[in-house]
Design a protein around this nucleic acid. Structure first.
Length: 657
RNA sequence: CGCGGAGUGGAGCAGCUGGCAGCUCGUCGGGCUCAUAACCCGAAGGUCAGAGGUUCAAAUCCUCUCUCCGCAACCA
């Protein structure tokens, strides 16, 4: 009686910018999967939504002189308008500003705090407002003090913060990943995540005092709960977790699939599962990381000005065609290249030439040769068997691909029938049968063509919500809903007395972008590629010059800034899990310090103890592999050897200049 | 040697439990006339990144090298 359930989610999107084609990709995939599951008899539930808190929204709202919520309301309306255009039929749209969500987040915070998984500490880091992300010193250094993601400015922030104890659950998570090979897909992401967890997890900062647009920490409202605990929780708050009415939660959790972009896999496969473990809840069955849609081989970004706006595309092309394109062109787990001529060519070749034209040919011949009537099959032709074989096998093939979220393969399977039908027409040549008066065979051939359309249209319906109705109308079976279902995928269902109604082409051919325009686009792409390569080479050359070549001239004052001292090595030991690092305890005069040196491949720890070495004493401390290093030991190296500078007579604390 | 992915006709990709190198697009030639200048057939085009090895047989397995990409990061 009760149907099997299927719960699928997209990430909740951040309303600081308009959505681009990548968001559309994820959401169309989730919608298609949901429609497919519903067609297969599942009680499928599809959640999407918006992540509305955070400093960036607060600032944007201030800039617009609006209440944050009012500001966000306007943007969310555009989200929902977009999903409407693309026929995204979500079952729920959660907004993190809704009380139903905020209450759950606070309840979870209190629970985790009560069981000792949350403590108060302080946090320091470089923070990029637009990416809502903290970066380490190393990351910032590599990108010359700018945000490594967006290139914008970062702020150095130190603040009191609540922390969530992640490491406590790390081993349990590793065990879970190990026992559930399908949990993280594709596999390459899985391996990345295993490595990441094995390197040890820092406690997670989960609150902020630097802005106020967020869910207040219970009993300490100067803190707001930071993105992780807030946003990720949407997947269960939408179902009513912790509420009196938690029927949906009981029914649908754990989720069958969280669809995520590859950029947020870590949050969904490490932080989120650990949160769930702490809450003693089952983990999602699968987190699937799809690839990015690249434009000119690069990530879409505002600064590059190459963002593809789905709203614009939706006004220009049919959304069914766009949905088809997104799921047919790209391999779901890998990155893919987008350009408008790839889109047009895909639509023309598959939808206009193959599928749409098949419908035109079929209805045209039925009208010309049989007065519009679909007659029951009579005499078989020698070409029928191969087509029958496909009717029998393709639905299963498509179903298998869908289970693996291989949308492109599912569509390729459907196209086996479409292509075969076009070929079948050529082989069986109905116009010749008509000319020769072979009406028995003609009836069969035309019937089979109609069946090919019926089969492919049923299987396509999750991908293209608007198209089936058009096909049914032209085939004259709009009223026969019982032969439009997955269960009707058996040969011979089209009833007698069906009358087709030839209409306009359902997918008209599109004008190919003009040659000059296409050439310009290609030239642009080639230029970008060349620039990227040149830049990379320049970077490499600069790096090399920096390490080998002579350096810029400096003044004696510059040099005087460096406090070089003699230090005695008291203790030395290898850093666990690192090939090159030694952890040293040294004494500069009377002051004892710890430092980390990348010399393990050249010196055994015991060789160093007791030696007098030279260190940079006023170097800003840094963490290497999580270990604090308060200074740097001097060493000389060439391509093969590395030798530290040692002294015999000058004692610890002595100045070097 | 950090972990992982990838290198296959002009482009984009599949094949990788070893058995004649395949698909889509493009190019060239032909067919058909039902159809949306569409559809069908055929051809050209590849030393499967390079070197070595295992094998009767290697794109596929093993070793090494080069290049690109993702993640990570230990030059303090």
């Amino acid at each position: 009686m009760s149907k099997p359930t299927f719960y699928i989610t997209t990430p909740i999107y951040y309303p600081s910018a308009t959505l681009h084609i990548g968001h559309c990709y994820t959401t169309v995939a989730a919608d298609t999967m949901t429609r497919y599951k519903k067609m297969r008899g599942y009680d499928a539930y599809f959640l999407t939504g918006s992540d509305e808190h955070g400093q960036k929204i607060q600032r944007s709202a201030e800039a617009a002189n609006m209440e944050p919520l009012k500001y966000v309301d306007g943007i969310i309306a555009t989200f929902q308008e977009l999903w409407g255009k693309f026929d995204i039929d979500y079952d729920d749209f959660i907004r993190t500003t809704q009380p139903r969500h905020e209450e759950v987040v606070q309840a979870i915070f209190e629970k985790l705090q009560a069981q000792g998984d949350i403590y108060l500490g302080s946090y320091q880091g470089h923070y990029c407002v637009s990416c809502e992300t903290f970066f380490t010193d190393t990351q910032i250094k590599d990108s010359q003090g700018k945000c490594p993601d967006c290139g914008g400015n970062v702020d150095l922030i130190k603040e009191e913060s609540y922390f969530f104890k992640m490491e406590k659950y790390a081993q349990r998570l590793l065990d879970y990943i190990d026992k559930n090979p399908d949990f993280i897909q594709p596999v390459s992401r899985r391996n990345e995540m295993i490595n990441f967890v094995k390197q040890g997890l820092d406690d997670l900062s989960i609150s902020r005092t630097t802005f106020s647009w967020g869910i207040p920490v219970p009993k300490d409202p100067k803190h707001v709960i930071y993105v992780w605990l807030d946003a990720l929780t949407n997947y269960i708050s939408a179902l009513g977790y912790t509420k009196e009415d938690d029927e949906k939660f009981k029914k649908y959790w754990p989720a069958d699939v969280h669809l995520v972009g590859k950029d947020i896999v870590r949050f969904h496969t490490i932080i989120w599962p650990i949160m769930l473990m702490a809450l003693d809840l089952p983990l999602p069955k699968k987190v699937f990381a799809h690839g990015w849609i690249l434009v000119n081989e690069g990530k879409m970004s505002k600064s590059k000005g190459n963002v593809v706006d789905p709203m614009v595309l939706a006004d220009k092309y049919s959304t069914d065609a766009l949905r088809y394109f997104l799921l047919r062109e790209f391999v779901f787990g890998s990155d893919g290249n987008y350009s408008e001529d790839i889109l047009i060519s895909r639509i023309n070749v598959d939808l206009a030439n193959d599928f749409g034209n098949l419908l035109s040919r079929t209805t045209a011949m039925l009208e010309k040769f049989q007065g519009g009537k679909v007659l029951q099959p009579q005499e078989k032709t020698e070409f029928d068997d191969e087509l029958m074989e496909l009717f029998k096998n393709v639905p299963q093939e498509m179903a298998d691909a869908m289970e693996k979220l291989e949308f492109n393969n599912a569509l390729a399977a459907i196209w086996k029938i479409v292509s075969k039908a076009n070929k079948y027409i050529d082989e069986a040549a109905p116009w010749a049968l008509n000319k020769n008066g072979d009406t028995a065979k003609l009836a069969t051939v035309l019937y089979n063509m109609a069946e090919a359309l019926r089969f492919s249209t049923i299987m396509l319906s999750p991908f293209m919500p608007k198209t089936p109705a058009k096909v049914w109308a032209q085939l004259g079976i709009s009223e026969n809903t019982e032969i439009q279902t997955w269960d009707s995928l058996e040969y011979g269902k089209i009833p007698e007395n069906t009358t087709v109604d030839r209409g306009e082409p359902i997918f008209p051919r599109l004008e190919v972008i003009k040659d000059e325009e296409a050439d310009a686009q290609k030239a642009e792409a080639a230029k970008l590629k060349a620039e990227k390569k040149a830049k990379k080479e320049a970077e490499r050359a600069a790096k090399k010059a920096k390490s080998e070549g002579p350096k810029e001239e400096i003044t004696i004052e510059d040099f005087a800034k460096i406090d070089l001292r003699v230090a005695t090595v008291l203790e030395a030991e290898k850093v666990e899990g690192a090939d090159k690092l030694l952890k040293l305890q040294i004494k500069i005069g009377e002051e004892q310090r710890q430092l980390v040196a990348g010399i393990a491949q050249h010196y055994a720890p015991e060789d160093l103890v007791g030696k007098n070495v030279v260190v940079v004493a006023n170097l800003k401390p840094a963490k290497l592999r999580g270990i604090e290093s308060q200074g740097m030991i001097l060493a000389a190296s060439d391509s093969e050897n590395l030798q530290i500078l040692t002294l015999d007579t000058v004692q610890s604390g002595g100045r070097v200049k």
